[in-house]
Nucleic acid binder design. Structure first.
Lengths: 252, 252
DNA sequence: GATAAAAGGTAAATAGACAAGACCTTAAAA
DNA sequence: TTTTAAGGTCTTGTCTATTTACCTTTTATC
């Protein structure tokens, strides 16, 4: 290939894609679940509340939750004190859905993992350079919460909390938003545990090292640690997905 | 502030915003103009062609170009060999539109400038680390094109081309996409020349230094140069916008 | 046990956005 | 003068989302 290379028509004008309201709502919910704002077994707000909070109508919310239910990450209970619950173990039952959902995106997931490494590294570096007293307190608190977490769901939630605290310390909201988007698109909101087995303690050490580097203002070190950490996280996630798509029935 | 701080309702669920097809088309066109794919004085493809290329209907295209015309960045000519032309000097005449369009986004433009510095720095660093032979050839060609450019529009276009070549060398498409989005949202597609007056030669030197650092594989240096370069570009853009919004009538 | 309340489930009517297509107007090229 | 290529306007149909109402299920609670 030589130079320039403007493909896609005469002037980079590819077809537009307009997301529907239901798409947007489904993405939001998946992101919230991925970030641990709704833990496993927890109940989502009632449809009517969700509709009001999200500024959409209830049928739209229903389309979105219906989609999540098809994927298998929500369970519905009727009657008083019913609602939509985040399912606990769902991988085995919905391997088909996973394959249908993720297979077309396989290449993209790879690329996005790389992007996430780069972005999180940048966030860590910038946070180390800009972290103030308030943010430092936030990071320490988030680290303490993470280290005292025991259940898998809690680990996931507090881990996300720590990364968000670091992102806040970078003092740049769009970067934090982009980071969240990447997490959501990579995991597609599936409540897969990136930290399983013997990786747990390694993750713990890395989280602490990352937080300390940021707090100490050591930008280079923070960037390097973040890069390694998210590389490993990404490879682990890929392995899990590979397993779940390769052997749908023999899995756990 | 203490810790955690999840605002916006009980669980980070803010109202969704669904962009319309016309919004999307207007953004695309603004981006294309901002990137110099349509130079000043050039004619856009006919509405019917745009509609086909973008996969939308003609009325939708008309809403989009109508908006750009209101802003003042397009001029319409009727009859045979008519069409929509990118306007050359428009700032003075449309200061009102600029103010209406940009004032609400003032804070956000600030933030996005910062984001752009960080992202472009990351792109330069990564490009320096990953640049292969093909990409190096692309960068050299783009640099040569930039250095031989004379007209302002050509400078702008080739500058964008150089930055895109560097982004390609980073081997991460989402980052390049994000970079383009930032450029588009910051400038809102206005054909403002970021490189005006005595900044031109400085920009030229910086572009060359950046390209050389990337080609030499010096990641740190490339990152530093990119950061400074985009900081200056951003400040210059801000100054121009401030002028154009502060003194709508006395401006040139 | 009866009842009220709180949740999901369903459905019809309305509004708005978009697409498709026909047709008119303008002005330059032939 | 005629043709032609462009923008300008209008109508109609379709799809999506909102609104609103009502039904069904279950569980607290009296």
């Amino acid at each position: 290939m030589g130079q320039g290379q403007r493909r896609a028509g005469q002037a980079g004008l590819e077809p537009v894609r307009v997301p529907s309201a239901a798409d947007e709502v489904a993405d939001r919910l998946l992101t919230a679940i991925a970030l641990g704002e709704f833990s496993v077994g927890e109940r989502l707000p009632p449809e009517r509340e969700l509709a009001e909070q999200l500024g959409v109508s209830r049928p739209t919310v229903r389309i979105a939750v219906g989609r999540l239910r098809e994927i298998g990450c929500l369970e519905v209970v009727r009657g008083r004190s019913g609602g939509h619950y985040v399912r606990t173990g769902w991988r085995a039952e919905s391997a088909d859905a996973v394959r249908r959902t993720l297979m077309p995106k396989w290449e993209r997931v790879h690329t996005l993992q790389d992007t996430r490494c780069l972005i999180e590294s940048l966030i860590a570096r910038t946070a180390a350079e800009r972290c103030g007293a308030d943010e430092a307190a936030d990071i320490r608190a988030a680290l303490a919460a993470y280290e005292s977490a025991s259940e898998p769901a809690e680990v996931r939630s507090t881990s996300a909390g720590l990364h968000e605290a670091i992102a806040r310390a970078a003092h740049n909201e769009p970067l934090a938003v982009y980071s969240r988007q990447l997490l959501q698109e990579i995991t597609a909101g599936f409540p897969i545990e990136p930290y399983s087995g013997n990786l747990t303690e390694r993750s713990l050490a890395e989280h602490r090292a990352l937080a300390e580097a940021v707090l100490a203002g050591e930008a280079e070190r923070a960037a390097r640690i973040a890069r390694e950490h998210f590389t490993i996280t990404g490879e682990n996630l890929r392995a899990i997905l590979e397993r779940s798509t390769a052997e749908p029935d023999s899995a756990s």
